[in-house]
Amino acid sequence: MNIFRLTGDLSHLAAIIILLLKIWKTRSCAGISGKSQILFALVFTTRYLDLLTSFISFYNTIMKLIYIGCAYATVYLIYMKFKATYDGNHDSFRLEFLVVPVGGLACLVNHDFSFLEILWTFSIYLESVAILPQLFMISKTGEAETITTHYLFFLGLYRALYLFNWIWRFYFEGFFDMIAIVAGVVQTILYCDFFYLYVTKVLKGKKLSLPA
């Protein structure tokens, strides 16, 4: 555990909690892509199956359970409790266009052709693109609520901090996982355009809206 890994995890946690609180406090999931949230629930479910087979640390177990629990709670709020506020017409990204190629790639490029490892690899690849339905939705509506942009900022920051964690681990531990690194780079790049808008608009007190 190094400072980048810890702040990365906390940034990820902050993002998840911000989104849950936003939906709960406003009693609305307007502007939130339910499809991205389904993908994140799928990411955590397929990645954390090792909870059933091995124990790593108290921290590890608790964080995994919180991530999974919050992901399903978010999906529940969007599709059940506050379903009336869900903007399904603008959330029109086709999930199969992500899940099917990612599943194929996980079977072809992985560290070990075993059930748990393929699902782990699938989750790494899927996470890197899981935000696309949300970004697609924002590009369709042309705007995002400020609290939604805070969520996206912390979610993007988390993987960027993991990149620094991997650089640290490479130098100090000789640890190196090409699959995680490449997927992490792709994931971080997808947020770059958003980061730019966040810094130039949202942090200066303006609402995030895209030019028509």
Binding site: R5, I56, N60, K64, D112, E117, F175, I179, A180
Partner: peptide, 10 residues
């Protein structure tokens, strides 16, 4: 074994 991925990272 280096084929098993790191399950400590989240």
């Amino acid at each position: 074994d280096d084929v098993v991925t790191d399950k400590d990272e989240l």
